[in-house]
Design a protein around this nucleic acid. Sequence first.
DNA 1: ACATAAAAATGATTTATATCATATTAATTT
DNA 2: AAATTAATATGATATAAATCATTTTTATGT
Lengths: 232, 232
Amino acid sequence: MVDLNKKICLECRHCFRRNVLFELLNDKELDLLNNNRTEVFFKKGEIIFKQGSPLTHIVIISEGLGKNYIEGPRGKNLIISIVQPYLINGGPGMYVDMRHHSSLMALVDSRACFIDVNIFKEVIRKNSIFAEEFIKCFSESNIHTFSQFVTLTQKNMEGRIAEALLYLKNDVFKNGSIKYITRQEIADLTGLTKESTIRVMKEFKNECVIDEEDKEITILNENALQKYADLG
Amino acid sequence: MVDLNKKICLECRHCFRRNVLFELLNDKELDLLNNNRTEVFFKKGEIIFKQGSPLTHIVIISEGLGKNYIEGPRGKNLIISIVQPYLINGGPGMYVDMRHHSSLMALVDSRACFIDVNIFKEVIRKNSIFAEEFIKCFSESNIHTFSQFVTLTQKNMEGRIAEALLYLKNDVFKNGSIKYITRQEIADLTGLTKESTIRVMKEFKNECVIDEEDKEITILNENALQKYADLG
DNA sequence: ACATAAAAATGATTTATATCATATTAATTT
DNA sequence: AAATTAATATGATATAAATCATTTTTATGT
């Protein structure tokens, strides 16, 4: 009979190794993380962690896709990032108040790995190279937030949608077509209303800057989008 | 004759110790930082470090006040934070591309301490408690950025100005009156134009929510401001 | 296959905020 | 003290984007 625990363990170590960050850990450290993890399946639309709730685990999506968003004061969401597999979802609360400062929702059926945050911090404390790379990841997402911040406060609708589409194409879907993202979500990425988003997307479609088939958005003219982003 | 080097050294260690973070370092580590630092005076309006330039040193303002801002694509600035003495100005670039992703300008005549970033990182690598506290500081500023992001994308003029004034009063000037900050700077903190900022400030003055004498802004009714922030 | 719900689309209207133009006051510089 | 520059103030006007009201299309559940 197959030892299911063992199987999950091996799977997980595989999952760990898919993020180059974990290559910096030795077997003992990997085992430590592995022995303090749980794996949970989420259906599309389910919340993986919720803003304000205790931050007890860091989350790695091993299969699927998520959106990381801040719930604004009157129900309006601001999407900070679209989360692909193997990225570490810690969040600034893990070193401040042990609370989540944003929510993570599954955009498609997803599998998520929960690692005890204290164990994770212990590994960071013990392995300074790993710590440094963790800070690096954190910093990279920070740089993206900065640039999104400027875009949303200083660019017009076309510029903001163009930036969001370029982000989705290049950073999230790695040059594939954009899937599983609704107009409302593009609105939440850009701080616009869904109606405005729909109008700009239609404008881009009419100008053959983008195309859409079967809910898949393809970017036909990246230069045009870049121009919108630059002029916006 | 007084040994000036020694004097600056002692001063600096004093400056280090004013930030509780440095209490976590041992003498050897403090010496290491101390031996790899320079102190520079800046006049009001001078740039301490410039967005895009190489990040070779972390900066601690030991006297004075600064503004940390992102220079937007078409000349419009976004102020991320007002920087008081003893705070560490690293920035996300120090673990990514060794470039500054924002600029720091002196708001009044200021003294700034430059510490070699590689030495600073070496200390972080060697002292895991210090590293953890550094991540904590970084995370706290991150949480503030998140909240400012939501405010600027989801609140109206009054709400944004109210949030900025509360930030200045409580976080920057520690319940003293708000000084050295122009209308243009409040505009850059809120993503508004200076004209709109002037109008809202006047509205707040008329309603006796704030008062201004000799360029010093006093908050007369914090509850009213909080209400504007909540409803905005 | 039908019913229900969710997403996308569209036009009309409103409104919050920016822009423009100009004046006044305060702060620096010469 | 005069001249120049920077900051604040104010009114008129324009406009980008939100809001509101419906409709159409697509997806999901029973």
